[in-house]
Design a protein around this nucleic acid. Structure first.
Lengths: 233, 233
DNA sequence: TCAAAAGTGTTGAACATACACCCATGT
DNA sequence: ACATGGGTGTATGTTCAACACTTTTGA
């Protein structure tokens, strides 16, 4: 490569979101090494030579969550490269957004002294680097994507009830949805969910049919818009 | 910076789209230096030390189009960093999407022997590097964004008629829209367009009211969906 | 006066919201 | 039996596609 081309370190940072305890949560890592040692930050790390960006993100996801071959949605979010964003020098960071179901993570990985789930709203005020901005962008992206993709199911287990799926929308959007209209809408949207075997009463009341995500078809039309709540009078 | 952190060159590549001659066109540069000398590619260049990514994109936009202080929409698209995508070595490229009105560009810049507008559909088969993929992603993004943002006006001059705005949608989406329903929809969507002074007959027929983009307000609701054409019988 | 484009009115269909109401389980 | 959540039916309102019709210019 020509000598006069400026070089930079390339990192990937992960915003791993999940719905947990009625809140939208993100995974944060307590930094075990400088800079910002002891502070919370997004999980991430440098891209290896000859490693693809997506592969680096997937590797970090597996490392930090302690789960290999992890069933989660992962997509590139945006790239942050403002000079001075990392005191070590020029670091260009490619941020990724991961949506995961609520699983009890072993967490705590390589250079991390600790890891924790925190409400996204709270973490924005605690993270080091420019990670608050990245987290904000990630949450905004997630909110937007629920509107026109069937991505909400990425927050659920392999099989789920319609009510659990509705809970995802309610938490991510901070609204209440009418259970009856939501049920109709989801089940009548072709390709969104497909009936799975069995029912469950884990939410109490009448047994609920289990569903799983539909086959990877194209789903162009808008899937969900607001649709406010209502009460029987 | 620690010595064992792998470094990479960071570039910005631009997909500059415009609507021209009833087609969605992109700006291509004939490369004046190796690699791929003589072939067509997207305009772009390396990010300077201490230069922000957005600033680098804006600088390249000004350089390649020959227009400084350019009134165009510019947003980050995605980042491409597959090892081997550039034969010179590890190059991570942050792609930007620009939407410009149809202006007669002086074009031809620094290391470019020539520049030309080409239909996006054709250029996909001609570009060097992984630029066909970048162009594809850009067109897809542009198409999607017209649906839920007022961005179509970025393809128009400072003032425009509703018919000109409709033409943008028709070309980008490859559909025909009903002029009457489109007119009603656009003018009744608060904050999309505001009446400007004067009328024009440049499209023939009855003089058309001129409009300009509304003040930078929030426009969350979906602005445009298909809405096929129809004929009076 | 005719063609061509701008713009308004109206109607039937599709869809969304807000509920009443019934169903199937655990306690 | 009754509380709890699952799921269906239905009326009312809103949005949208289709298209008839009027307006205003240039040729």
């Amino acid at each position: 490569m020509k000598a006069d081309i400026p070089l930079a370190a390339v990192a990937v940072d992960l915003v791993i979101l999940t719905v947990r305890q009625d809140a939208l949560m993100a995974l944060a890592i307590r930094r075990g090494i400088p800079p910002f040692k002891g502070q919370w930050a997004l999980p991430g790390g440098f891209v290896l030579p000859d490693e693809d960006l997506d592969a680096a993100a997937r590797r970090e996801l597996a490392e930090e969550t302690g789960l290999a071959d992890f069933r989660a949605h992962l997509e590139q979010l945006a790239t942050y490269g403002t000079p001075g964003r990392d005191p070590r020098g020029r670091v260009v960071s490619v941020a990724y957004l991961a949506l995961a179901p609520d699983l009890p993570f072993p967490s705590a990985g390589s250079d991390a002294a600790a890891a924790r789930w925190g409400p996204a709203a709270d973490l924005v005020g605690e993270l080091a680097f420019d990670h608050p901005q990245i987290l904000n962008d990630a949450v905004e992206r997630a909110r937007a994507k629920l509107e026109y993709t069937p991505l909400a199911a990425a927050f659920c287990a392999d099989t789920f009830t319609i009510a659990e799926l509705r809970h995802v929308y309610e938490v991510v959007w901070g609204v209440e949805l009418d259970p009856r209209n939501f049920h109709r809408k989801v089940t009548s949207t072709h390709g969104f969910v497909v009936q799975a075997d069995g029912t469950t009463t884990r939410d109490g009341g009448r047994p609920a049919q289990l569903f799983s995500v539909g086959p990877a078809e194209v789903l162009r039309p808008p899937l969900m818009r607001t649709g406010a709540a209502g009460e029987d009078r």
